[in-house]
């Protein structure tokens, strides 16, 4: 891991973007409070692509802590749900990153990540905070949402990574 000032600066920018997107998501209208588009994952995936999986994990987990700090939800139930969802989503996405190439693109990775995040949140909520046989009814809507939102985030990330690739070639 290259420890340079340049890397620290770029990492901070990715984290700042992920945070701003997450806070923004809290205030836009949503069909249900937990059905977020997941735009933070654009920054997380880009960080994974530019640096390595470890850095992607760092951006994701720090985003959960700092985001909860910003909105005043540190260690609240929603923070626990967010953290567990993000960790599982990061694990799933980093596992799929290794087979990314001819058959799997960022879109599939993003869909899997979105679904893992929402499904983990539902399961943790059922196991710790409420009853699993009640909360399980949220799964169908969340699945449809995860596929759509994951596809959108994946398409955006693909597009941005294309731009970055062009920029990288022109020595920036």
């Amino acid at each position: 891991m290259e420890c340079s000032n340049r890397k620290l600066a770029r990492f901070s920018l990715y984290l700042a973007i992920a945070l701003s997107l997450w806070v923004f998501e809290e205030f836009i209208p949503r069909p249900m409070p937990w059905l977020k588009p997941g735009f933070s994952y654009i920054a997380i995936l880009l960080a994974m692509l530019e640096f390595d999986i470890k850095t992607g994990f760092a951006v994701g987990i720090l985003r959960v802590f700092l985001g909860a700090l910003i909105l005043g939800r540190l260690f609240s139930p929603s923070f626990i749900l967010s953290l567990s969802g993000t960790i599982v989503a990061l694990i799933v996405m980093s596992a799929l990153m290794s087979i990314r190439g001819k058959f799997v693109s960022l879109i599939g990775i993003s869909i899997a990540g979105a679904f893992s995040h929402l499904a983990t949140q539902i399961l943790v909520a059922g196991a710790i905070f409420y009853r699993i046989d009640a909360v399980i009814w949220l799964m169908p809507i969340s699945t449809i949402w995860a596929i759509v939102a994951g596809a959108i985030v994946g398409i955006i990330t693909e597009r941005v990574s294309l731009l970055r690739f062009q920029m990288k070639n022109s020595r920036l």
Partner: peptide, 9 residues
């Protein structure tokens, strides 16, 4: 850019 693996996922 969508690949066959994405649909499988």
């Amino acid at each position: 850019k969508i690949k066959i693996g994405d649909f499988i996922i």
